[in-house]
Structures are given as C-alpha cells and as structure tokens.
C-alpha cells in the first residue's frame, strides 16, 4: 500500500532480473524490472482485462474530446421529417421523437459523463484528502470532522445528491459540486486511515526532529504514502460519479434538459419504448460500458499498485 514498502519488495526481487537490454529493447515492457518505480505499469499492461478496459476508457475519452468530428449530425438538430426512425446507415443509432440523431447525442453525452466523473473525482479527492489528513493528524479535530462525515454518510448517496441539487438548481457545475460532497467522506475516511498508520513512522518522527512543520510533513510524507490507494479509490469515484450523474439526469434533477446526457436520453426514450427502443437502449448501453471499463481499470490498477490485494 505504502509506496516505500512497495519499493522495498521490488528491490528484493530485482536481483533475479538484471538484464535491461539495449537500444529500442529498453522500451519493451519486460525491460521494466521489478526494481523500477514503474513496475506497476508493467503489471498493469500485462493484465489483459485491465488493458482492454483501459483501451475502452481511452476510446470513449477520445470520442468525447473529438465529438464535433465523430458525430455525423448536430446533436440538437431537430428534423421532424425523420422522427423515431430505426437505426439505419444514415442514423446508426436511429432518431428520437424530435428527429434528432441518437448516435450524435450519445457521442456528445460522453462529454458530460466524463467531465462530471473526472471533476467529481478531483473535487472529492481534494476535499477528502484535506479533511482526512487534518482529522488523522490532529486528534482534537478528528472527532468533529469525522462526525460531520458520518452525518453526510447517513444519507443514501443519491438522496443527498438530490437534496443538494434541489438547493443549487439544475446545472452541470452544480452536479459536480453535489456529487463531490457526496463522495468526500469516502476519500476522507481512506486518507484518515493511512494518516493514522503513517503518523508514527520513524520517517515522520525524523522529519519532525529536523524541524519540519506539520503541513510539509503531511504533504511530503503522509499524503505521498496515501497516493496508491487514493489513485485506486479515485478510479472508482469516477465510475460512481458517472453513474450518479446519469441517475440524477434521469430523474430530471441533474444537468439541464437541453444538454444531451446519457441519463436524460434514457429517460426521454422511456415513454416510447414500444415504438423506438433505440432511443433509450443505446445511451444506456454506452453508460454501462463506460462504467464497467472504469471499474475494471480500477481493479487492474489496484492489483498492479498493491501486490497484497491480488485476488485469490
């Protein structure tokens, strides 16, 4: 879990494979020996499930970034002449009840999903890390901060998100704020745990002995040692965030309706499921694929970064 320990294990194994190769061979995966600090990258890329899911995540990311190029039609272009058309060569995912191209809307919807997922991860990680570090480091603030986290966790997460959205009103930025708050306790608990574990380590004591102040110690020795579990947890928060945004948008409490999102597309297709299943099914399927790929990437990262949690 801790970076230092991980390197210790790696150094031990390094004796067996000293050959790093020359020229272009240095860039082969097998050239990354267990002694390297990038060994986790080799473990990750040699795991077929993780590699495939990372590839899929990358593909969806590219699709979102290049949406104007990938999408064959304007996502909001209303064409009454082609209402509710089944998938065809011109409209691969068919058209919705206003004659908008479902494929183009799905492509643009990826932007919102990924934007929200990644921003929620960043927001929750920043707030959660600060709270977790402070709570773990200063006993006096611990009880207060963690009781507030308990209070936030007393709500089913989607309910808290709905309550916050009711206050802030529908907007993409507000969805990000609401979901960041919802997932902050999760991160805070994790960071608090690693802080408590690291706080009394000799390297922290020696840093204090040479006169380092609290904040630099927290940043340099405690936070950096929480990094690998944080990265893994962060991946799962991305997946949670994408799911929760879709649920909020499905309920009409998320991103405003004029922006195409996967959740609101599924919802808009529901009344006409009998005539036009494609309006709901394609955005939903892409949502599932994205969340699945993100989760599997997280599993792969966990296996690569923390050799102790390998599956039995």
């Amino acid at each position: 879990m801790a970076v230092t320990e991980f390197r210790g294990v790696a150094n031990h194994a390094a004796v067996a494979t000293p050959d790093r190769g020359r020229g272009w061979r240095r860039w082969r995966l097998s050239a990354i020996t267990p002694a390297s600090r990038y060994y986790w990258l080799r473990l990750l890329l040699q795991n077929p499930a993780a590699l495939a899911s990372l590839g899929l995540v990358l593909l969806i990311f590219l699709m979102a970034v290049l949406a104007p190029i990938v999408a064959p039609h304007e996502p909001n272009f209303v064409d009454p002449a082609v209402r509710l058309q089944a998938p065809s060569a011109d409209h691969v995912f068919g058209t919705d009840d206003l004659g908008r191209d479902v494929f183009s809307r799905v492509v643009y919807g990826a932007r919102i999903s990924l934007l929200v997922g990644v921003s929620v991860m960043v927001g929750a990680t920043v707030m959660g890390s600060l709270i977790g570090l402070v709570a773990g480091f200063y006993r006096r603030l611990d009880t207060l901060l963690m009781r507030v986290m308990d209070g936030l966790e007393a709500f089913p997460s989607i309910l808290l998100a709905i309550a916050i959205m009711a206050t802030l009103g529908p907007a993409t930025r507000n969805v990000i704020v609401a979901l960041s708050v919802v997932y902050t306790p999760n991160i805070a608990r994790l960071v608090r745990g690693t802080t408590l574990m690291n706080k009394h380590q000799p390297y922290v004591e020696s840093a204090r002995a040479i006169g380092m102040r609290d904040f630099p110690i927290m940043r340099r020795y405690i936070f950096m040692n929480s990094l690998s579990p944080l990265i893994v947890q962060g991946t799962f928060v991305v997946a949670f965030g994408i799911l929760a945004e879709a649920s909020l948008s499905f309920l009409g409490a998320g991103v405003p309706p004029e922006t195409p999102t996967w959740g609101s597309m599924v919802s808009s297709g529901q009344p006409r499921l009998q005539q036009a299943w494609w309006v709901s099914v394609f955005p939903g399927a892409l949502l599932v694929a994205t969340v699945l790929a993100t989760n599997l990437s997280g599993d792969g990262l966990r296996d690569a970064l923390d050799p102790r949690t390998r599956k039995r």
Partner: peptide, 13 residues
C-alpha cells in the same frame, strides 16, 4: 455497472 434505472428499462422492454 448497470444503473438500476437502465436495468429497469431493459426489464420493461
């Protein structure tokens, strides 16, 4: 990975 609302829609379908 399947959000409950989408699973519900698939069941309805």
């Amino acid at each position: 990975a399947i959000p409950s609302f989408f699973f519900g829609i698939l069941l309805i379908l």
